[in-house]
Design a protein around this nucleic acid. Structure first.
Lengths: 340, 340
DNA sequence: GATTTTTACGCAATCGATGCCGGAAAGAAG
DNA sequence: CTTCTTTCCGGCATCGATTGCGTAAAAATC
């Protein structure tokens, strides 16, 4: 059990004071070049490691960032975090990660905990059950920068990094139309989560732009699991206005649609086109491979950190940063046999 | 911009001193019941939030744990972290997460950074390029508890939580044998990473126990990607001693084997049995579905935290904690058509 | 050579919470 | 009524790094 080396140990060895050592280590101007070198050398020799906690207490700010996401072990969030880490590491920031399990209460507690740690910023994707943003307001009042991503609340004034859910859904429908599909169905998420609402609106806009009919019966809400999607699709496919394509708000739902088609002996993609959302790893492993919307999650993480680093002095109303989500065309919608 | 409320603000409001407030808030014995209540009430009223950084500086220990993994966005590690978080949250611990990207240098720096943060413990899974454990030794010298999991180094004395890679590989071979396979091949990982070495040894032991022949030609090392596995399998399947089954050290490799079989027109499971390792989500989505070894990753995370919480005073030589990994039998090895 | 400017460093306070010690007040024991 | 315990709380130092202020020494100016 050794005691950690402090600046005072270095000072004593060099017959200086802590102040000078502190300044020398941070390369301040009012320290002699000679002494600087000596201090650096001595620090290396004694294997000095700065006590970040002490520095943080004094400075009132930590070189740490809080990240709050619904689930850590979710492909999308894990990738975003990896992207954030990639950039934050280069800038010497640590990541304190919390997961809310979609519980508002846990989200509030997590934000509080991060505040108590004096983090420099909080990067958050709201949980499904989030009722308000008072906790974020409080964080902001304590000079903690807040950045929202993915599931955001536009009513809370902060930097926001989001996918163009609306446009990508529009594009997905456009793609389906280009492949000759005439009656796309939609597997929607819960209506009160903004990204799912946007995808839904994009779907409708896409239909409108393509001149395709909208059939309420061919929309199933809150349909993000494989099972729910499967039964919803079976109902639609055996119903009066049978769809010839489906845009799913999540890849799992697309998978459910695929199973439904297989069970009913409906060929994909010739009789039914299927497009998912998220580009989960397994979408290129199914038979047929699933077209899906890629969210560029790692890229999003990097953009989040770059935005954080790059905007210490914020504009009044920061425009949301859009990370483009694109349709990845695979076999499940490639009716015309095009490559790409 | 409000200033955070401190214990002194509470003290002033109640005409007490910081010491008393501090003791009252932590429910120490030498404070009057009356005052305790007053302090608690006042704290709530003023929305007091403790400054953890200050407490940490004073105590020399943080209620934070460092986690170091090769990749955050890896199904297994993400699940372990989720499991850790589940338990750590209940005990008020924060998680500071680092990823090494399999770089030894980054691993060392991450551990140092965590030390500088005075974390209470470091939970680590070694990177593939880790050369030594000096960084862990130093952490231990600074009274930081180290826990290794998954990819561990038994030469470094610490608590270890691991899968029974050896036994599960033995069991996997046993399963293949029970299904009537006679010449199992093996897709191995790099020889210098212990878990892969253990799986390899388990494979050989399994053959021995089943009385099956070992053919060096039917073992491919450093074969963890889909592409490498595929080409290795093609070579084996067209070679002189064609295997009738294969145990892969990773699911991606199993997937490559599946592709190789498909390409060569070899039926799975009747002509070739395939068993993977890790139970990645996509293994139940392939055609046929892939048998694989489940590592109970979330469970492992929970066990890690429980071990951390439960063992402040450690035994001399802590036995490694084994999390059982089991074969999940799916269609790719189910030649006899058994259910389960 | 005297004065001003610059350079380089020390002193002491500070961040907020904690713990040891000491002592006043209240109660118990003689 | 005095003495001995308890009970309860204040004073002060501490954790390690940081910074404003002050000042001695060195350098520059006339």
């Amino acid at each position: 059990m050794k005691k950690p080396v402090t600046i005072y140990d270095i000072a004593k060895a060099l017959k200086l004071t802590g102040s000078t050592v502190s300044r020398a280590l941070r390369d301040r101007s009012d320290v002699g070049e000679e002494t600087k070198k000596k201090v650096l050398a001595q620090a290396k020799k004694m294997r000095y490691q700065p006590n970040l906690v002490a520095a943080n207490l004094r400075n009132g700010k930590t070189k740490a960032l809080g990240i709050v996401v619904p689930e850590i072990n979710n492909h999308f969030f894990a990738n975003v975090i990896a992207g954030i880490e990639h950039v934050s590491y280069q800038h010497g920031y640590n990541l304190i990660i919390c997961q809310t399990n979609e519980l508002f209460e846990k989200e509030v507690e997590s934000v509080k905990m991060l505040m108590n740690h004096n983090v420099a910023g909080i990067i958050i994707s709201l949980s499904k059950t989030t009722l308000n943003t008072l906790h974020l307001l409080e964080a902001k009042a304590h000079q903690i920068r807040v950045i929202q991503f993915d599931r955001t609340d536009s009513k809370f004034d902060s930097l926001r990094i989001i996918n163009n859910n609306f446009e990508s859904a529009v594009n997905a429908v456009k793609h389906l139309h280009e492949q000759g599909y005439q009656r796309p169905a939609f597997l929607a998420g819960p209506r009160d989560v903004n990204i799912f609402q946007e995808r839904y609106e994009g779907f409708r806009k896409g239909l409108e732009l393509a001149g395709l009919p909208f059939t309420r019966k061919n929309v199933a809400f809150d349909c993000l699991t494989k099972e729910k999607a499967k039964s919803a699709m079976v109902k639609m496919l055996t119903g009066p206005s049978r769809p010839d394509a489906v845009l799913a708000s999540a890849d799992l739902a697309a998978l459910g649609a695929l199973e439904a088609a297989n069970e009913l002996g409906i060929n994909v993609p010739s009789e039914l086109g299927i497009c998912g959302f998220s580009n989960e790893p397994y979408t290129e492993l199914t038979n047929p491979t699933l077209s899906t919307v890629d969210q560029y999650s790692i890229e999003m993480g990097k953009r989040i950190m770059e935005a954080f680093i790059g905007s210490p002095g914020r504009k009044k109303t920061p425009d949301p940063i859009i990370v483009n989500a694109d349709v990845v065309v695979r076999r499940s919608t490639n009716r015309l046999g095009l490559t790409g």
